[in-house]
Simulated assay, not measured.
Amino acid sequence: MGRDNLSIVSFNSSRRGLNSLKTSERSPYLERIIEGSSPDICLLPGDDKAMTMNAVRGYGQYYVPSADGTVLLYDNNRIRMNEQQVNVNRFGPLPELDTYKMVLPSVQVLSLMPSNDRSVVKEFSLVSWKYTMFSQSRDKTRTLESLIVFCQRLALSTEKAVFIGGEMAIDYDTIVKITKNLSQKGRERYVSDAQSEMVDHAFLPSMTKATVRDRRHLFEMNVYKCKSDPVLSSNEPQADCFISSKILELSEAKLVDVEKVCSRQCKLETLVDVKKVSSKQCKLETLRKICPTATTMTIPQRPPRHHGG
């Protein structure tokens, strides 16, 4: 059985663009994007003003604890989402982090094989939130620091990798700096603690880092930025990016491109208010250059089955 991918689309960075559309246009736009890109998981801002939609057919909804906003949609045929079996209250309190605005499901990815008893081929924790967790924060940098620490503790407690996706309203360089700094501090502390125990079991100190690599890579994080064409990049200071455990295999984020306009099938690359569309020249004059972003997670090849011999 070969490798396959898990598709994840985020509308968090395009929340303002969605709000610029008329109320009657938001749901059809969301449905077209979801139907066109067919994501396995869809991240939403949890903003009721932008997300005036019912669940898309075939997709389950995941609300924040207050049940006043849908933060996740997921393909019922491919994904199972369950509550975490750990008490996250013992991770904190952490400054400027409001867990009441967060969703923390444990995700199970099912095999593609058509079977009544489909196996689980991937498990990880997903962390997202309502956009107001950052937008209403008194210190966005502190919120991000607390979020990364929270996810590190979640990964160590559950022994599962973590995928982080949500609107952070903070610049890319700051996200990378904080993520790398906390990953390095966590690695140094973890290796130091593990080293003393391993020496007692006759391991050489130099072997510690490599021996605990897989476990380290659960709480050490990488940042995946949206690498879009400069013409299509948003002027907003916030970054279109995802953060995940190093052990997860993600592609670089990219713009979602499924919209088609005019008779010559030119691609509408952005979520826009269109002022003029010429059928001859097929030009678009736009007010905004904001659109959803996407990434894919690689599902590793399953080991071959042996039937004796």
Rank of each mutant, 00 (worst) to 15 (best):
P93G: 04
Y172W: 07
K276R: 11
Y224Q: 05
T296D: 14
R118P: 08
N5E: 03
N12P: 00
E35L: 07
V223D: 13
S263A: 09
F203Y: 06
V256Y: 01
K276L: 14
T211H: 05
D75A: 11
L104Y: 06
R288Y: 14
G46K: 09
A294K: 13
C42G: 03
K225D: 09
T23K: 15
D200L: 14
K254T: 15
E220Y: 00
A210N: 02
I33H: 00
Q108K: 05
N222H: 10
C151K: 01
F219I: 00
T179L: 15
V231R: 10
E167Q: 13
P45Q: 11
T70H: 04
E35N: 06
M81G: 05
C241D: 04
S157C: 10
D139W: 05
G36L: 07
Y59R: 09
V231G: 03
A194P: 00
S20R: 06
Q152D: 12
E96N: 07
K209D: 05
T99A: 15
H217G: 00
V9H: 04
M81R: 02
G92W: 07
S10P: 05
Q85T: 10
V56G: 08
V274M: 12
P95T: 01
T99R: 15
K122Q: 12
T208V: 12
E25M: 10
P28K: 05
M81Q: 06
F124P: 01
C226M: 09
Q61S: 04
